[in-house]
Design a binder for these strands. Structure first.
Lengths: 192, 192
DNA sequence: GTCTATAGAAAGATAGAC
DNA sequence: GTCTATCTTTCTATAGAC
């Protein structure tokens, strides 16, 4: 790859990352292109060499974030499926996640924002949502014959738990909610 | 109350209702004061006779919506607590709710939007969230000794289920999610 | 590809007439 | 209290130099 193309790819990646961070912290409409570009160490004018529009960027940023988050996380060799699912639940339903200190899940951080956007964005959301369900399904079926129903309930609880926690204004309640979701998820995943 | 005050109250109520509808459909930033006032049958200029700012309106609209929604819904005489909770779950986790055809729950419709707003708004969210938990707690304790943990997990699943459903772009999946949450909620509420 | 400069549109908030 | 008119700011998107 020629140097300039290499450079462009790096810039693009920086923009995507900055964009997702700001979108999750402030929402789509509260985040300006100017802000994103400055955060990425560039200026406004360079934006349109990478993306067609702000809305285009939104989709790309969500996809990019999903590609580096839970939905594609790989199980380490030394853990069995059950232990790994517990790890996944623990880190998903954690304060670190809620407070956006590690790879934020777009499913939980952008839910209602995405619900009000165009169909293409909602398609992207649907795709990622299915990936998360598949990921958990694949790792639970070896040790439990948990139903499809319980699986869907668990992901709704994970996403809901994190989304609510971000909106709440009391740390104590947040901790209770996260803990409750973790326990209930494990119960549901080991039932038939 | 003098006629003019009566009139003002009616206008205010119309504005609150229009605002909440548009906020849930389009999000806070995508909804303009102009739009809200036209929807309420008034013009822009009249807005500031009722509210100090758009942000002020947001809080009032959420409170007003909560006051007319699930969190204060009363059990009809002819139903026992268990039957009523089942009714509540059924209507909360329904397509009618997801598609905003009946009193939308601010907890599910505005979750991530509120997470990015000022502390006062998040305080309002927290208050309403607790009301919903109390409501369910009061009606389940007579027929089940379901734990506080399970209660929190159930409301996370209700809110999460509806929030996700609004973002998804496939009717079939939405129906599955809603049904799954309904069943799992009933299971959790009847466990210790 | 990235920069500065700017066009053009939209929206929050205010002023003053009725 | 509600209206029309307007100030002011902000933002998306484009133009043109390097």
């Amino acid at each position: 790859m020629p140097r300039s193309a290499e450079q462009k790819k790096r810039s693009r990646q920086r923009i995507l990352k900055s964009a997702f961070k700001l979108f999750t912290e402030q929402g789509f409409e509260n985040t300006s292109i100017d802000q994103i570009m400055h955060h990425a160490g560039l200026t406004r004018g360079a934006f349109y060499a990478h993306f067609a529009s702000k809305s285009d960027l939104y989709q790309q940023a969500i996809l990019n974030a999903a590609a580096g988050s839970y939905v594609v996380r790989r199980k380490p060799q030394h853990l069995d499926n059950k232990a790994w699912i517990e790890t996944l639940l623990s880190s998903y339903l954690s304060r670190d996640h809620v407070e956006n200190r590690e790879a934020a899940c777009p499913l939980a951080f952008l839910t209602t924002d995405i619900a009000t956007r165009e169909p293409e964005v909602r398609n992207t959301y649907t795709k990622i949502y299915k990936k998360l369900n598949n990921l958990i399904h694949q790792h639970t079926q070896t040790y439990s014959n948990c139903s499809e129903t319980n699986l869907l309930a668990v992901t709704a609880m994970m996403i809901g738990g994190v989304a609510i926690s971000r909106a709440l204004n009391e740390q104590e309640t947040v901790d209770q909610v996260l803990e409750a979701c973790k326990r209930a998820a494990q119960t549901l995943l080991s039932e038939t």
